[in-house]
């Protein structure tokens, strides 16, 4: 199979470019990560992140034939050749397929992604009904791979001020938790022309999320809550 892979080595003095590779690999049952690992055996200077190799850790988000995806759960079969693999868009490239995620995680930390509940802790668990818990389905499964945020045109324009779909989904995950008491504080922070309202419902995030989550819907709900509380 034929591959074109984005290469950039900041120490070499040469600019970034695409390099062509040919790989003798049976596509059936293999993922793009398998191909990257095989390419690295040919050329050990190829750098990319990977860990769980099963789509739960979020390390290997890359851009494959123009679409953000996890390399480890993207089947080789069905991909148009040469398969083009690039780093996730809009984040600074450290080297090859490795991007600097600092901005992405700054936005995550900014939404206070932790439960806030100031009541004394009971001796046992806090109770939560199955229906209340079901509100968290589709929110808590996020793996912070950044496929969504780096596919979002609003993020491309305002990466420093717009929080992006992953951070907004995290914000809503705690707003939606029946045990959390900081909804007002969270909404106050999000009520901002950039942080939240740069989301224009483009839905690229939904398109690319490897876990099948829907950040646009979460953003829509937050917007509705903001409208409702002014009425």
């Amino acid at each position: 199979m034929r591959f074109r892979v984005y290469r950039y080595d900041p120490e070499s003095g040469a600019g970034p470019g695409m390099r062509d590779y040919v790989l003798d690999i049976e596509a059936r049952g293999k993922m793009v990560l398998d191909a990257l690992l095989a390419l690295k055996e040919q050329d050990d200077s190829l750098a990319f992140r990977r860990s769980c190799r099963e789509g739960v850790c979020g390390s290997d988000g890359v851009n494959i034939n123009g679409i953000n995806a996890l390399a480890c759960v993207t089947p080789l079969s069905g991909l148009r050749e040469p398969i083009e693999i690039r780093p996730l868009p809009r984040l600074p490239v450290v080297r090859d397929l490795i991007v600097d995620m600092s901005q992405f995680f700054r936005h995550y930390r900014a939404v206070k992604p932790y439960l806030i509940n100031l009541d004394p802790e009971p001796e046992i668990e806090r109770l939560q009904s199955p229906a209340e818990r079901a509100d968290l389905d589709g929110l808590y499964e996020c793996i912070q791979c950044a496929c969504c945020t780096t596919a979002c045109p609003s993020f491309w324009w305002n990466p420093d001020r717009y929080l992006g779909p992953a951070a907004l989904l995290a914000a809503y995950r705690f707003i939606a938790d029946s045990r959390d008491q900081a909804t007002e504080e969270r909404l106050d922070y999000l009520e901002d022309p950039y942080r939240l309202f740069r989301c224009h419902g483009i839905m690229n995030c939904v398109e690319v999320c490897p876990k099948g989550l829907n950040p646009t819907a979460a953003v829509g709900t937050i917007k509705a809550m903001l409208v409702n509380r002014t009425l």
């Binding site: 001796e123 009904s129 818990r133 968290l136």
Partner: peptide, 20 residues
């Protein structure tokens, strides 16, 4: 340690009575 995790916010699945 499990109750502690629940207090930290871990989204445990729930039984009909609201317990873990």
């Amino acid at each position: 340690v499990v109750y502690e995790l629940e207090h930290m916010g871990l989204p445990f699945s729930r039984l009909a009575n609201g317990k873990i």
